[in-house]
């Protein structure tokens, strides 16, 4: 075998560089606006950075984390984050799954129906928040009156100002806005199930309910798992609705960790403390992702 003649250095370099030339602009922007601030943000967690205090900026070690350990509002936020995330994701999943199943059967006008039920996804989140806040407002919104008429509320009051119920406000808005996401993802998965499987099962004598259990669910399970995993992280970080609808109130009863970070940075301009909370949030999310990956590995190993 004769070796191929060695190609000119510049030409080889050019070939190597080509894909990088195409992706460089995108990567540079991402590095400058996401990676650099991430590193800087981590350093803030150990420094005293307050915008209103010109003498701040010094290294404070673990002071922020010590303060955080004794911060009651933070502990409340942790609990709220858990409920907010779990409830929002589960209800979205449930309604999204039902909607996907409904849309999977062909019927006249399905295209229009689909466009209409998916429309909430296009509504800007700030507007979603405001809109639902108005709907919950007894002065102009119908919801308190309806809930009262149904006997769910003792009087037509605003649940957003009721410490025990307030979290349901943002959750309702998040469910309304997020159902399309689950429905679309699951609908795509449903439509990839070969129809002859259903036909074979029907010929074998399975009723619709059995077909759902033995064919549909096993096929959807991996899609549901990955979507729930990703959505959980996303919803945990999603602050728009809480900030718009309740601002974390009343009495921090709707404050989540993410909205607490925003409050610290935006209202108090205490960047150091906000960054310390951010770091904790990042670790919690990483731990969650790791836990899920380990669980998945266990399941795969068990299947072997």
């Amino acid at each position: 075998m004769t070796p191929a003649p060695r190609r000119p250095f510049l030409q080889r370099l050019g070939d190597r560089a080509e894909p990088w030339l195409y992706s460089a602009p995108a990567l540079i922007v991402i590095a400058a606006v996401m990676l650099v601030p991430l590193v800087v943000g981590i350093s803030y967690a150990f420094r005293d950075v307050q915008i209103l205090n010109p003498f701040s900026g010094g290294f404070v070690g673990l002071d922020h984390f010590r303060a955080l350990a004794g911060d009651k509002a933070f502990r409340v936020a942790l609990v709220n984050t858990f409920w907010w995330t779990v409830l929002t994701v589960l209800i979205q999943l449930l309604f999204g799954l039902v909607l996907a199943l409904l849309l999977d059967t062909p019927f006249r006008g399905r295209g229009i129906a689909q466009a209409l039920v998916f429309l909430p996804w296009a509504v800007p989140t700030f507007l979603t928040g405001l809109n639902w806040a108005w709907l919950f407002n007894p002065t102009i919104g119908p919801l308190p009156h309806w809930l009262h008429a149904l006997g769910l509320l003792a009087e037509p009051s605003n649940i957003l100002s009721d410490p025990n119920l307030a979290l349901w406000g943002p959750i309702t808005a998040a469910v309304w806005w997020g159902i399309p996401f689950f429905a679309i993802t699951l609908l795509a998965a449903l439509q990839s199930i070969p129809s002859d499987l259903y036909e074979a099962a029907a010929i074998d004598g399975a009723n619709p309910f059995q077909r759902f259990w033995s064919i549909t669910l096993p096929f959807l399970a991996p899609v549901i798992a990955i979507t729930v995993l990703l959505r959980t992280v996303w919803v945990a970080n999603f602050t728009d609705l809480i900030i718009v609808m309740t601002g974390g109130g009343p009495a921090d009863r709707t404050q989540t960790v993410a909205s607490y970070i925003f409050t610290q940075a935006f209202k108090r301009l205490d960047f150091g403390y906000a960054s310390a909370i951010s770091l904790v949030l990042l670790f919690l999310l990483l731990a969650y992702a790791l836990l899920i990956l380990l669980l998945r590995q266990r399941l795969i190993d068990r299947d072997k």
Partner: peptide
């Protein structure tokens, strides 16, 4: 690595970046 980086940025709590981006 590039695909992985892009994917990670999607999972990332953007609210973390509010303070440092403002400062930068």
């Amino acid at each position: 690595t590039v695909s992985g980086l892009l994917l990670v940025t999607q999972m990332f709590p953007l609210v973390m970046l509010v303070a440092p981006i403002f400062k930068l």
